[in-house]
């Protein structure tokens, strides 16, 4: 299917979702559908339990800073900032 057809399908599916859920239809509904709706169901799933092993991997890297974004005690994102030589780049 070409990309334009896919975009139109996304809009039509979201339109149906909006009609169904009414006032609960929000930007988050769209965002979740856009980023997760296109993933095959059998491939979906959490990956944040892998974060500790990622951190272990990044720990040995030179010039790498790892930021863990938590929501409550849940890992939300792992942010990796690579600092080239002595340049002092910071992301937050």
């Amino acid at each position: 299917m070409n990309r334009k057809k896919e975009m139109e399908n996304v809009l039509k599916t979201l339109y149906k979702i909006a009609l169904k859920i009414g006032n609960d239809f929000s930007m988050d509904t769209v965002y979740d559908y856009l980023t997760q709706g296109i993933v095959d169901d059998n491939k979906k799933g959490k990956i944040n339990d892998l974060f500790p092993s990622f951190i272990e991997y990044f720990k040995n890297k030179k010039n790498i800073k790892v930021f863990i974004v938590l929501f409550g005690d849940i890992f939300v994102n792992l942010i990796i900032s690579f600092q080239v030589k002595t340049q002092n780049y910071l992301i937050q």
């Binding site: 997760q36 993933v39 491939k43 979906k44 799933g45 959490k46 990956i47 944040n48 974060f51 990622f54 849940i74 890992f75 939300v76 994102n77 792992l78 942010i79 990796i80 900032s81 690579f82 600092q83 080239v84 340049q87 780049y89 992301i91």
Partner: peptide, 10 residues
């Protein structure tokens, strides 16, 4: 140089 991110789910 990069600023990268890994999300919590697929």
């Amino acid at each position: 140089y990069h600023e990268s991110k890994i999300g919590s789910e697929v």
